[in-house]
């Protein structure tokens, strides 16, 4: 599989990273180098092998479904680039 400029543009947009038009070709080349390296995985016979979805075979711990934290909006907003009246402020998202 080879990534062209158009695919690079699409991936950059999916990742929400602006890439200038003139960079797209070089970016596609970098992707292709990494994907060529990764292609080796196709040599492995994975027939009947389950994907590893947990590092240790253990049941994820459960906890009581109760509120244990919270109630300090000022701390939550303390690092916001733009916060107003107790909310995060962003550019207009609906017309």
């Amino acid at each position: 599989m080879s990534i062209d400029k158009e695919t690079a543009r699409r991936v950059a947009h999916l990742a929400r990273i602006r890439v200038e038009e003139e960079r797209l070709g070089a970016l596609a080349d970098e992707f292709n180098a990494i994907l060529a390296f990764v292609e080796q995985l196709n040599e492995v016979d994975v027939e009947g092998i389950e994907p590893m979805t947990a590092v240790h075979p253990m049941r994820l711990k459960r906890r009581q479904d109760e509120v244990t934290d919270g109630g300090y909006p000022e701390k939550i907003l303390a690092n916001a680039p733009d916060a107003r009246e107790g909310f995060f402020a962003v550019p207009k998202v609906v017309e």
Binding site: I3, T7, V11, A12, L14, A15, R16, I17, R18, V19, L27, E30, F31, I34, L35
Partner: peptide, 19 residues
């Protein structure tokens, strides 16, 4: 924000991961 904030290697890995 993400283009300015992330360096080249981080951008590359985020995009490979997205792909």
């Amino acid at each position: 924000t993400r283009a300015e904030g992330f360096g080249a290697e981080v951008q590359r890995r985020v995009m490979i991961g997205t792909y």
